[in-house]
Design a protein around this nucleic acid. Structure first.
Lengths: 345, 345
DNA sequence: TCTTTTTATGTAATCGATTACATTTATCAT
DNA sequence: ATGATAAATGTAATCGATTACATAAAAAGA
């Protein structure tokens, strides 16, 4: 039995109704009488009919897919977010395309082309680093009403977004270090143009100020969320004459890079230096030492973003109805072993 | 300028040719005379025309997408493979759908439905754990000619695949440990029904035998590639009366779980116990200690799988032309710090 | 009983590109 | 010059589902 070529026509004939009726049975079953509805479903079953997506999409002017822009698929941070997204979108049988923005090879053509090529109905962007010209392109082509941001966002851009409470996360981290007796606290930031960098640094600086802790210019070390930047930060710290006793890192990956390099250079974590990360990726629990970090509810982040997007798509071009104020999810400090009571104090 | 509704008709009118000619300019430019071709392209540019994917797909009976089945997106091991895949498929403008097979929520409906719903042209499966009934479904529906496996494969299943030389990888690991003076070598396997588990264990056992090393039943510890199974393995080892001096793990994640737990229990790596992983994910270089491991060329793995699949799709249902013997890529031992010369020997 | 309204179903145009086949034009051998 | 062949382009059917509009049947109202 190969049902490859059953069309809606065949079902209609089998059920003794018109194609319109079959179509309605699928999309608006409540319009049909009990009897015909049953007949149609029986015919669908007996013929093994499946709707042809391309035909439906052509007629309805939908793509049945959304694109998710991920800054770096290799960062396990994103997987759970994607899971949340697929779960929500799967219910509405919309498929999920994934593009890695870090991987320039896959990103030759402007993003807006995906829309123009009617390949996608909308986009979830996990990358706040879109260029201004890119955003202007969205505007010009009237597709900005079908874009939502998750995790990251673009400063000053009035589009729907879902994010964690990054400022509070940073405050929790600093507070915790303070509670452990640390006074000289450093921070490894994300890349300078990133909104998360800004939020986390702000939270860190504010809390440090609030607690009346000392501030040194060199204790704020520029990074970029990567393992490698953690390593660089470690070298910077090793060279300092007035070393901090604790470091709050803008991501878990940075923390790993940092700890790994500190350890290799004889600075033990947490005995000689406490470290806190941000994200709580799966591995953090299994690092040596287990990483104290700020947890984001990644699955929820993805799910919310997806339903927000579906909303925007449904309300259509008008878009005004689409909520624009950011949804902010709470974070949680997960205490493990990489930060401990300050030694020799 | 909103080009939303330019159809091929509009271009044709603008260029003073028929729609057929425009279509040919896109798909078979060499059929047209230099002059008309230029005219058409000019018209395309001036109207901002973009082909409507749904219409093309409907007519050509293609989906323009392939599905990649990933056992666990959270495992950073897969990201580079995906990069390789997208790069290759992007050139043929085919989009990439990703399904996480570990995430049952997204996988309610049988895989074969993706084909039957004409949502995909083919599938790259990174998960060798497909059920027999699933595979039979592929057969029954004539879609098995458009499935290729990468990394993993299904034992006894005659479908194209790309994989690393797992047996050799395991041998290299054991050899290296032997070279470092280790004699009592343990192995943490993957899940029992997995083909990689089998290949790596086989390589390990064969090499251990070849080198005339002692074998104890309990030194082969069952795992499942996960961080958690590494932790379990560590507990098993800690309880042993006759402890191995080195452990070869079936994945880097297992190695991390193992090292983390050993360390937490006072067994230092590599001083008291050497550990080798498999995969060489990004993090391995930054673990503490930096992980000695077997590297797979993940990007190449993905790229080869993708081009193999395109091949299968192009030759069509006949499929016989499609190469069925596995492509096997070489692996490489990356020596870092987690395995060292045996102590007290 | 005869309108009027409601509910259920059918008819046929439509979405936009591709391509088999037909036709025209150019090239070439004789 | 002429018929044969090749190259370039056009005509129109087609892919398969959706839906505006039309119609028929049933229910409600007078």
């Amino acid at each position: 039995m190969n049902h490859k070529n059953t069309r809606i026509q065949d079902v209609a004939r089998e059920a003794g109704v018109s194609t319109a009726t079959v179509s309605r049975a699928l999309s608006n079953p409540e319009l049909l009488s009990e009897a015909t509805r049953e007949q149609v479903f029986a015919a669908i079953r007996s013929t093994g009919y499946r709707v042809n997506r391309a035909a439906r999409n052509l007629r309805t002017r939908r793509a049945g897919a959304v694109l998710v822009m991920v800054p770096n698929l290799g960062n396990p941070f994103f997987s759970q977010i994607l899971a949340g997204i697929s779960e929500t979108l799967g219910d509405r049988d919309t498929s999920v395309l994934i593009a890695d923005t870090g991987d320039r090879a896959t990103l030759e053509k402007p993003l807006v082309d995906y829309f123009l090529d009617s390949q996608i109905d909308g986009m979830i962007c996990l990358d706040g680093g879109l260029s201004h010209s890119e955003i202007q392109l969205f505007r010009d082509n009237g597709v900005s009403g079908r874009v939502v941001f998750a995790c990251e966002w673009v400063h000053g851009l009035d589009l729907p977004s879902v994010r964690s409470d990054n400022v509070r996360g940073a405050r929790l981290a600093v507070q915790h270090l303070h509670d452990l007796g640390h006074r000289k606290i450093a921070h490894v930031t994300g890349p300078e143009d990133n909104v998360l960098t800004h939020a986390r640094r702000t939270g860190m600086l504010e809390e440090r100020a609030r607690l009346g802790l000392p501030a040194r210019e060199e204790w704020i070390i520029r990074g970029d969320f990567s393992l490698a930047s953690g390593r660089l930060a470690a070298h910077r710290i090793l060279e300092m004459t007035d070393r901090p006793t604790a470091v709050f890192c803008a991501s878990d990956q940075v923390a790993f890079g940092l700890i790994s390099t500190l350890t290799a250079n004889g600075v033990r974590v947490p005995e000689d230096m406490s470290v806190i990360g941000f994200d709580d990726i799966d591995l953090s629990e299994f690092y040596v030492p287990a990483l104290t970090t700020v947890r984001q509810d990644r699955r929820a982040l993805g799910a919310r973003a997806a339903s927000l997007l579906l909303n925007c798509i449904d309300v259509g071009e008008e878009g005004a109805a689409c909520r624009r104020d950011p949804v902010i999810l709470d974070v949680e400090l997960v205490i493990r072993s990489s930060a401990t009571r300050v030694s020799g104090a």
